[in-house]
């Protein structure tokens, strides 16, 4: 069993609204897996099924080799979860909540707890009532990172954190990864996923639209090419796989399908190149392409 999470064809409806419509998700043990999608795509619903809080209407799902609904209590010994919208007990302090969750998960490392509190700059003596959204999120994050869970399920964990804290968060995730833990990270923040994740799954409207390593997914998109040429390159316009070609004197810009790069470069070389920049597709472009699908 080398998949921490394996879900196939998940279906879940709330009344007439279909939240999941055949969603697939595989998270390999030891990887950081990005779970990407716009709001309402079904990310949180999937996570709540994985946590045994919702029962799927259809499809199969296995979590750490068990059934997340039937074996919830047993499986929860081995995971830690940070909800996207952290609500805490208003009359308890942050420190009390961290210790409560830690104890419930079978204890946490006090050294790590202290270190994390310091790095996240969280005052554990304050009542949760007085915490901001970001600080409530930090409480849940400290509790999760200080546990020795083998699987971390993080639902848009940085949505309330400032950039400095996001950096601390990134370090923590990388440390978990080095320690061999599995992380499922749902997000719509692409830079976060780009720096952290080994593989990503992109969901839209309750279905998985793409899944694979970032390299796998990049082949689906186009490379931006900007060049300053010595001579004209008339053949470029008729090459298949070249898009949005603009020529401004000697400057040329276009977008090229990954499998058309070789003939394009040959054509450019024939014309003579003074300067050349190519940019890999950003995840933004990946993302936009899938979102545009909705309106197309």
């Amino acid at each position: 069993m080398n998949a921490a999470v394996h879900a196939g064809g998940l279906v879940k409806s709330f009344g007439r609204a279909k939240a999941l419509d055949g969603l697939d998700l595989t998270v390999k043990t030891g990887e950081v897996h990005g779970f990407l999608g716009p709001n309402g795509a079904g990310k949180t619903t999937t996570i709540r099924i994985l946590l045994g809080q919702l029962r799927a209407d259809g499809g199969q799902v296995a979590l750490l080799g068990g059934d997340p609904w039937r074996d919830a209590t047993e499986l929860h010994r081995r995971l830690a979860y940070v909800p996207g919208d952290v609500t805490l007990w208003p009359s308890l302090t942050g420190g009390e909540v961290i210790d409560l969750l830690g104890r419930a998960r079978g204890g946490l490392d006090p050294r790590q707890r202290a270190e994390l509190l310091e790095r996240f700059e969280l005052d554990p003596r304050k009542k949760c009532r007085t915490y901001s959204k970001g600080n409530r999120q930090k409480v849940a994050l400290v509790a999760a990172f200080a546990s020795d869970a083998e699987l971390l399920i993080l639902d848009e964990p940085t949505s309330g954190l400032d950039p400095l804290m996001e950096a601390v968060f990134n370090e923590c995730v990388l440390r978990e990864k080095r320690a061999g833990r599995t992380v499922l990270l749902s997000s719509h923040i692409l830079s976060e996923v780009e720096t952290l994740c080994d593989r990503v799954s992109i969901v839209r409207a309750g279905r998985t639209v793409e899944s694979g390593t970032l390299a796998d997914l990049r082949h689906l998109t186009r490379t931006s090419v900007t060049a300053e040429l010595i001579g004209p390159a008339p053949g470029l316009a008729v090459l298949p796989g070249v898009h949005n070609l603009t020529v401004d004197g000697a400057r040329l810009r276009c977008q090229v399908d990954s499998d058309a790069l070789t003939p394009v470069l040959a054509e450019l070389a024939r014309a003579g190149v003074r300067a050349l920049t190519t940019q890999p597709p950003t995840l933004e472009e990946l993302f936009l392409r899938h979102y545009e699908g909705a309106t197309r």
Binding site: W89, S91, L92, T93, G95, E96, V97, I98, D99, L100, R103, A104, D123, P124, R125, K126, K127, R129, T130
Partner: peptide
Amino acid sequence: ARPGPAEGTLPGAFGLAARL
């Protein structure tokens, strides 16, 4: 609101419920 303890002693679900 006064600051409270930095460390908790709630032993689990029942402890939390008692507190609430």
